[in-house]
Design a protein around this nucleic acid. Structure first.
Lengths: 341, 341
DNA sequence: ATGGGGTGTCGAAGCGCTTCGACTGGGGTA
DNA sequence: TACCCCAGTCGAAGCGCTTCGACACCCCAT
């Protein structure tokens, strides 16, 4: 293993000079700089990460906390994760992967042992037990999602309240008077997961504001559950003509179930999903949807973190405005509804 | 930040004694040990990871390389990843997440900077460009999957050749004489990804051995692609009564497509999938399947790595035998086929 | 009483880097 | 000509830990 001393010897300078060449923290003459750089390349020198971290008090590693809890949709999580890794690398940082197994103590462990410089925390519940820990930690963190009490935290999220409302507005604008929200599995609500709760709120408030009927139901992932949930929903509310779906993995089977129940999309039933664009576009018919900008959120989370590490200021809460793209799955409500209205 | 010196002072011993208490590498009197442990708790001491890594030449971090390339099925990948993280923690290691963006140099970077002690590498191609790099690296690695030339490497995988053969045998045993393999997206084959290629080989060889017709086709993820692929397949080979599916995300839509094409499962068409058990069980009808033991493979990968780190020997290639579970989607071939045979 | 072998503890060196203060020499200013 | 300043470089200290060799001390055997 080649050390900075080897490079220094090879280039005929002091080790500190090599360090300054590499970091750029002091001016170095062109001549010396090039000589050192040549030695670095010739010897294939790579600074030892631990030594660097010990001396500089910076590990250049970010923690990424992905609980992977039941009911969560993994591909979406990974879109966030991939964006975080990519952006972190752009700022010369690596990413340590933490799952939920360790609970809040896991965060303390990596933070207090200086394994990482900062944390990105995903899948936030309204009363998340990790939040008090994060507040006390001696290093910056960014939450993807936000708890009820976000005091002193930095949070980034899609504005799910607005997303829920957008869906209602879109359908109400098309003349639909009776809507349902087909949500995530009930475990997600029971945990009081932020994005699910807030969509619910946005949906319910908007329905009231628009004077339309809005009912909500969770939905599990199995085909039987979907069939049962939808059948019961339509039995109890036969006049429903608009469905908002926030549950990516059930989208395929749901279309199937609706067909089975004799409801054509969009003629008998309009659909708006809250999901990634590519998922919406892959369906038949293509779904009107509010997209989840996972990449942008992941990017921004890392950028905020880097800014905080450099002592900069970032907004406490960044809510990205949702965008609804109308595709084939939503259209004017059937006539009888319009006349009733 | 409390250091080992603080603990030593608080307990009235030398710093080295504290270190030995923590590591157990020398005998310490019960009295001293307990006093030190009390001080550790009282001060909330956590060893500094960088200092420890620098002094001991061990970072206690494993790299997990997940390319996340196009066509891969993310949830399966994440099952591996979750297992790797969990098992790594059991051995007091953390996991650094690397994606493909950096290519082989990324591996060199983390290895040569001593950021990690060892690597777990996923999604191996038959002629993987990372393999020569891994061979030269001054630290152990384990591949999940295996390349054509696995000399000097440690690899763990499901025996996909046997998996492909199992599916054929199962269907042939049920009297099916004409089978098709509905595979991964063509990008995966073009990359010569190990698991896909080997399943193909196992499928083709077994078909020949059993004297049945076996055709193969890749299949993209969109609904239209599935419809088109299956329709074409059945047009060209109308006598096909058995389908082997190695493409998790298309399973739902595929059942839909078959229904649309007027083929009942299993009466007109038997289906065997190569996928996670929970996915197979979630379908209607439930799918006969060869399961992918992601958790066991992830576990074992880490365990082999730890063994290697401790100087132990591990087998160069561990192939887990596939297990086929018969469920509702496969049954005896329709009579006319049996009489033909 | 004396020597020998454990057992338990200590001090110091060193892991490879960053960073601070100090030093040198050359160029500009007074 | 004398002085100062700055660019460029060096040496040393120190980051917090592990580990090695040394050294007490106690107990047992002689």
């Amino acid at each position: 293993m080649v050390t900075i001393a080897d490079v220094a010897r090879h280039a005929g300078v002091a080790a500190s000079t090599v360090s300054y060449v590499l970091s750029g923290k002091r001016t170095i003459s062109t001549d010396t700089r090039e000589r050192v750089q040549r030695s670095v390349r010739a010897l294939g020198y790579r600074p030892n990460a631990s030594a660097r971290a010990l001396a500089s008090q910076r590990s250049n590693v970010l923690a990424l906390v992905i609980p992977l809890r039941t009911g969560m949709h993994v591909p979406v999580m990974m879109q966030f994760a991939a964006a975080v890794v990519t952006t972190a690398r752009r700022y010369d940082h690596d990413v340590l992967l933490l799952t939920a197994d360790e609970g809040p103590e896991g965060l303390e462990r990596v933070a207090q042992s200086s394994l990482v410089d900062a944390l990105v925390v995903m899948d936030i519940e309204l009363a998340d037990e990790r939040v008090p820990v994060l507040r006390e930690l001696p290093m910056p963190s960014v939450l993807i999602g936000y708890p009820d009490d976000a005091d002193g935290l930095t949070c980034i999220d899609l504005d799910f309240v607005a997303a829920g409302a957008h869906c209602v507005d879109h359908l109400a604008d098309l003349g639909h008077r009776s809507l349902a929200l087909l949500g995530t599995p009930s475990a997600v609500y029971e945990r009081q997961t932020g994005f699910a709760q807030r969509t619910l709120t946005g949906f319910a408030d908007a329905a009231e504001r628009r004077g339309v009927v809005g009912v909500e139901t969770p939905c599990e992932h199995t085909f039987d559950a979907i069939l049962h949930t939808v059948r019961e929903l339509l039995d109890e509310h036969p006049d429903i003509t608009g469905l908002v779906v926030q549950n990516e993995p059930i989208i395929g089977p749901l279309l199937d179930v609706l067909r089975r129940l004799g409801r054509r999309v969009p003629d008998d039933m309009s659909l708006v999903a809250i999901c990634a664009d590519d998922v919406a576009e892959r369906q038949v018919p293509q779904l009107s949807s509010v997209s989840i900008p996972a990449e942008r959120i992941g990017d921004q989370a890392v950028e905020s973190l880097i800014t905080k590490l450099e002592g900069g200021d970032v907004p406490a809460l960044t809510l990205l405005p949702p965008a609804l793209t109308a595709r084939e799955s939503s259209c004017q409500a059937p006539h009888r509804d319009l006349t009733t209205a």
